[in-house]
Design a protein around this nucleic acid. Structure first.
Lengths: 228, 228
DNA sequence: CGTATCATTGACGTCGGTCAATTCGTGTGG
DNA sequence: CCACACGAATTGACCGACGTCAATGATACG
């Protein structure tokens, strides 16, 4: 499901030719910045990347937490200026492409354009999920939905021992900025979820204790998760 | 910027061959329904289409108001089941395509896949805008931002006499469901905007009286509107 | 002219925000 | 090994933006 990986074998070399190579970014570093042109594209191989927008007022809206397989930095030309920030929440491994030859590369390799279209369509659906979650649910439901979805996505990518919990390199402030809440209220809502025996969540890890009850609260339909 | 229109001339016939023809839907009718497979794709030629999701609880989140040029009904296969509803707010003219041959058509015509990728990327950006608006702004700012963006989009498609206002076939409930508010609070907030001489808005039309002040309130950057 | 839909307004309640203080955890330097 | 520092988590008191409920008014349509 990544951009460069699962091509038909004999085509793979073409994309391989264009890539600049793999690179590692340390936790806290930035892949690219809102409003600034960026000459590279990134295929996320390992680690977590947070995508967010900054408002003039300084507030931050988290758009997505990108997991391995995500293709980052590509967008219709706003004169090359990107519309969001991308920072690494963990050490991150990416496959780097130069941006310039990409349009012609897409024309030469239709399956690349096709794959990009699908990735983008999936991103749109994901954004619509996110939108619905923020727009129409209470804080408690938002958090439930968010944790379940994140858990499912991580479970799908990393090997997770069933019921063992996952690594979750997010602060409560990150979660708050994703859900349109304050870190304080996220904390208070988390407490009620914990007290009800639904989740456990500490520094850097998450465990879902009662997925079915959480799914009811968050109106989460596991079968409808097409966003892996 | 539509799917079938601006191809290089000699290619156009290929897409034309596949299309099933133009069709008109009356206001209030539905193009497709959430959870139901749909065998067609639609290129919106004229009119307004509202895209929304319904939650189990019955609440509705409006995802987008589609304007001419939008390409509707295409998404990565969730077994063909669509994830949102599309209903016509006005009489609507669409160019209809059968869904089945589309994957192979994309492979034959790379420029189609490329165009779809770009349209989808634009949709993602638009969804991120929407997300930021709902997640991080007060009701007053949300409304200001929403009205300005909508005005800009309509202005870009239909010929608008400067300062004359536009047709806006939305009820306050539609707006509320798009912005994560209640129709009642939308009404009250609109009143304050009117009283401050910023907008005029009645049944089916909208006039922006003070765009610069509205832009300040809504943190709206006209230059950043890449969503035409 | 009657009915349905949408807009408007007020009274009241609450969910979530703001402010501020305390605790906890981890890393760092003495 | 302990003292300190710093960021994150936690908690409480208070407040305000927005929701809920209910009634009235305006428009369009048959």
């Amino acid at each position: 499901m990544t951009v460069c990986q699962p091509f038909v074998p004999e085509r793979l070399d073409v994309v391989e030719t264009f890539k600049k190579g793999d690179r590692v970014f340390p936790a806290g570093s930035r892949l690219y910045q809102q409003g600034v042109p960026c000459t590279e594209l990134y295929n996320l191989l390992d680690g977590w990347v947070m995508l967010y927008r900054l408002l003039p007022s300084g507030r931050r809206q988290v758009l997505d937490f990108a997991l391995p397989g995500a293709f980052l930095g590509w967008q219709p030309n706003a004169m090359g200026r990107l519309l969001h920030d991308a920072v690494c929440l963990t050490d991150v491994a990416v496959c780097v492409f130069p941006r310039a030859p990409f349009p012609s590369l897409m024309r030469e390799r239709p399956e690349l354009a096709e794959r990009l279209a699908w990735l983008q369509a999936r991103d749109t659906i994901s954004a619509h999920d996110h939108l619905t979650n923020i727009g129409k649910r209470s804080a408690r439901a938002r958090l439930s939905h968010f944790l379940l979805e994140l858990y499912a996505r991580v479970e799908h990518r990393y090997s997770v021992v069933n019921g063992e919990g996952i690594e979750l390199p997010l602060t409560q402030e990150h979660i708050a900025d994703a859900l349109g809440l304050t870190n304080i209220y996220v904390n208070k809502t988390l407490r009620t979820l914990r007290e009800d025996g639904l989740v456990r969540l500490g520094r850097g890890w998450l465990q879902i204790l009662n997925p079915s009850e959480l799914a009811v609260i968050g109106e989460f339909d596991a079968k409808a998760s097409h966003l892996y």
